[in-house]
Write a protein that binds this DNA or RNA. Structure first.
Length: 478
RNA sequence: GCCGGCGUAGCUCAGUGGUAGAGCGGAAUCUUCAUAAGGUUAUGGUCGGAAGUUCGAUCCUUCCCGCCGGCACCA
């Protein structure tokens, strides 16, 4: 059986989820659901990244323990997935000392055995106020811009991952397509980065600076730093190194990530895997950012869109639809309430919802209590429209073109509306019952097409075809 | 500074070496099974600007303008 392992990135739980992550998890969910329908064995993973100084600080500021803090925020991400009707099979947390930690420590030991970790002393400018090293470029006239103090030169020991030596191997994997990056333009960026030379990266922090993390094996002065910790989630969740799921599902078919963290997924992570002797993920799918009314989302602008209130107001399917249809899959997209409502009214209320309502009504008129949904189309033209849509959807999703996949489905709806106008089945003349039968089957097919995208609507259509529920799928938003 | 992308109807975008398409919005009209929904039709673009290659360019080349992304540098 075909295997399909898809992951989202694991967001840092420093704050509640925003719509950027909603986009990522929705896209991943479509692919997961789509592949399940094709009969593949699918494993869909998401989770949260919960260690580090920032979390420890935020917890302290909030007057709670880091554990309480991360439990709370991680719970919000889990809740978002649930509210968005996401079909993830698992949810991994980097604070999971039973599932995640042993895998990270195993990975660590193996990297070290393969001579890819090296302890070095690192010297930099350290701001005690920020509890962080500062790059020259972050300073304002030699002072920390936040604390207005000159950071002090501090020397500390770190374990470094010898990323630099993997440049040529990574280049080869990318160029050969063994590791694909979608879209292509992002691959070129990474190749450019490699060309300029990869730097070794710090993989640990001294314990006295960072306690909220995973202890480095055989060195109790150090704690694992973010990359070795977070990236490993993709295999820790599968039970690396010996878990059944790991054997079954690795390598990942798709890592869905945002453009901001592509470089880590396209350099550090595959380099770690090469060091471990593991196969590389097949595709890294990179989505863009979402702007709001043409502007960057930011707390200071006060234009942050809360996914929960959006779902509350319009429903999960409407949110899913907007992000899949209106936001270009791999580029930046814009969110505006005007656009959102336009899409909602035109495509969901007047389009899908209205079509289902009119067909069901005609079905009720022609057949009474129980609707006989045929097993196929009697009209050949109808059949070919549906076949074409199916092909179109497959092709579009193979290329991560969610919007154009949806367009194919909407073409079927347009055909249905036209067909109704042409055949006037409400006149109940000869052949009307056959026409309505085709329409009922068309709706049944639409539910099938829509399931990966709008699982809620698909469910409702199926229920309405089988029973007496006639509630509007998408009530018009005023 | 280096690398890359983009600029096509009011909006979002597709597209081809032979003088352009879709959806949405707006207009007219037909219709009533339907969520003031649906159908049809018309309108709507000198395909960023200039030059070149070509029998012919929106699609190829060069330059220019504008926008965007990545990297580096500076602050």
């Amino acid at each position: 059986m075909e295997k399909f392992y898809i992951t989202t990135s694991i967001p840092y739980v420093n704050g509640p989820p925003h719509i950027g992550f909603a986009l990522e998890i929705i896209q991943a969910d479509v692919l997961a659901r789509f592949n399940r329908r094709k009969g593949s064995a699918v494993f869909f993973l998401t989770g949260t990244d919960e260690h580090g100084l920032k979390i420890a600080k935020s917890a302290k500021d909030a007057g709670v323990s880091p554990r309480e803090f991360t439990d709370s925020i991680s719970g919000k991400f889990r809740d978002l997935a649930k509210k968005l009707d996401i079909s993830n099979d698992d949810f991994i947390r980097t604070t999971d000392a039973i599932r995640h930690w042993p895998a990270v420590q195993t990975v660590w030991k193996q990297l070290k055995e393969h001579s890819d970790l090296e302890k070095r002393s690192y010297e930099g400018l350290y701001c005690a106020g920020c509890e962080a090293f500062m790059a020259e470029k972050d300073l304002a006239e030699g002072l920390c811009p936040i604390h207005k103090k000159a950071p002090e030169p501090v020397k500390e020991e770190n374990w470094f991952f010898l990323l630099s030596k993997y440049g040529p191997a990574l280049k080869e994997k990318l160029e050969s397509g063994e590791l694909r990056i979608v879209p292509e333009s992002r691959k070129n960026e990474i190749l450019e980065l490699i060309k300029q030379g990869l730097q070794d990266v710090s993989f640990s922090r001294p314990k006295e600076k960072l306690q909220w993390g995973i202890p480095v094996p055989d060195d109790d002065t150090q704690v694992v730093y973010v990359w070795a910790d977070a990236l490993t989630n993709y295999i820790s969740a599968l039970g690396y190194p010996s878990g059944e799921k790991f054997k079954e599902y690795w390598p990942a078919s798709v890592h869905a990530v945002g453009k901001d963290i592509l470089r880590f997924h396209a350099t550090i992570w595959p380099a770690m895997l090469l060091s471990l002797g593991l196969p590389l993920p097949k595709i890294i799918f990179v989505h863009g950012f979402i702007t709001v009314e043409g502007q960057k989302m930011s707390k200071s602008l006060g234009n942050v869109i809360d996914p929960f209130s959006l779902i509350e107001k319009y429903g999960a399917d409407a949110v899913r639809y907007f992000f899949l249809r209106e936001v270009p899959a791999a580029e930046d997209g814009d969110f505006s309430f005007e656009r959102f409502e336009q899409r909602y009214n035109a495509d969901l209320a007047s389009g899908l919802g209205n079509l289902v309502a009119r067909v069901l009504k005609m079905g009720d008129m022609a057949f009474g209590e129980t609707l006989p949904v045929p097993a196929g189309f009697s009209d050949k033209q109808f059949q070919s429209v549906a076949d074409e849509a199916r092909k179109g959807i497959d092709g579009a999703l193979d290329n991560f073109q969610f919007g154009s996949a949806l367009e194919k489905i909407w073409e079927v709806m347009r055909f249905c509306d036209k067909y109704i106008d042409e055949k006037k089945p409400w006149e109940q003349k000869d052949g009307s019952r056959e026409v309505i039968g085709d329409l009922l089957f068309a709706i049944h097919e639409l539910a099938d097409f829509l399931e990966p995208f709008l699982p809620g609507a698909a469910r409702k259509i199926t229920i309405q075809l089988a029973g007496r529920d006639r509630a509007a799928l998408f009530p018009r938003a005023v």
